[in-house]
Write a protein that binds this DNA or RNA. Structure first.
Lengths: 115, 115
DNA sequence: CATGCCTATCGTCGTTCTACGATGAAGCGC
DNA sequence: GCGCTTCATCGTAGAACGACGATAGGCATG
C-alpha cells in the first residue's frame, strides 16, 4: 500500500437536510451569531473556510501551503473554527482531515438571514 | 413645539434595490466578509443591529437604555458598526439618529450566502 | 447668555488576539 | 525499534479589544 492505510472515502458527511428548529432571534441566537461572526472575523479564517469548501473533499494541513502563515498559526485558526463549530477535524493516520460542518453553515446563513 | 425642531420623517433611506455587482469571492470579498464578521463578533453589537432593525425607525442613544453598558461603551460599539459600514448615524439636533445601512446588510447576506 | 441634555472622545486598565519558534505526541514505513 | 512526517500545544511578545469614568463639544430651552 502506498500511503493511506484506510481509503475512508469521505470524512465529511453528506449535506443532510434536517430543518433546524432553533429560533433565529432572541438572546441565545444573538450569542450564536456573535460567536460565528467572531470566528469569521479574521481573513485567514475566512480563507480557510473557503478553501475547505472549494475542495469539498477535506484537505489536511495542506492548508498551511496555501496560506502565508506558520503551521502553528494555522493550527490555532483551525482550533478557533473548530470551537465555533464551523469545522470538524478527523484524524486520518498521521494527518488530520478538516472539513466544513454543513449544519453550522446553514445555521449561520439562517442567523444572518434573520437580520 | 415640544421636542424635535424638525419632524424629519425618516433619516433612514428606503430599502432601494440596486443589484450590487461586486463578486462574492476572491481576496477582496474575503476581506469584506471578515470585516463585517468582525463587526458582528460581539453580542452587544449584534443586539444593537437587531434593535435598529426592530424599530426600523432609528433610535438614537435610546440604545443605551436597552443595553447594560455605559454610554461610552455603546458609543464605541456604534463607532465600530459605523466604520464597518453596517450602520449610519445622522445628527438630529442635540441627538444622533442611527440606522441600519440596508446595502451593507444585503452585501453581508450575499457574502455569507456564498459560503 | 447660561443651563442642561445628548453624544463623542480621551486616557486607562485588564483581557484577548495574532503571530511565531520550539517542543511534544502520534502514527506510518523502513 | 528508529526515524520521518504531521499536527497540536506551550511560551512569548506586541497589538488590538472591551469596558469604564471623566471630559469636552453641540445644540435646544429658558
Amino acid at each position: 500500500m502506498k500511503r493511506k492505510s484506510k481509503p475512508k472515502a469521505a470524512c465529511c458527511p453528506p449535506p443532510e437536510d434536517s430543518p433546524d428548529l432553533r429560533p433565529t432571534e432572541g438572546p441565545q441566537a444573538d450569542r450564536e451569531l456573535a460567536s460565528f461572526a467572531k470566528a469569521l472575523g479574521h481573513v485567514a479564517r475566512v480563507q480557510i473556510v473557503r478553501l475547505l469548501l472549494r475542495k469539498n473533499s477535506c484537505v489536511c494541513g495542506g492548508i498551511v501551503d496555501e496560506l502565508p502563515l506558520a503551521q502553528s498559526t494555522v493550527s490555532q485558526h483551525l482550533k478557533v473554527l473548530k470551537q465555533a463549530g464551523l469545522v470538524r477535524g478527523e484524524i486520518d493516520g498521521p494527518r488530520v482531515c478538516y472539513c466544513i460542518e454543513p449544519r453550522a453553515l446553514r445555521r449561520l446563513r439562517a442567523l444572518v438571514g434573520s437580520l
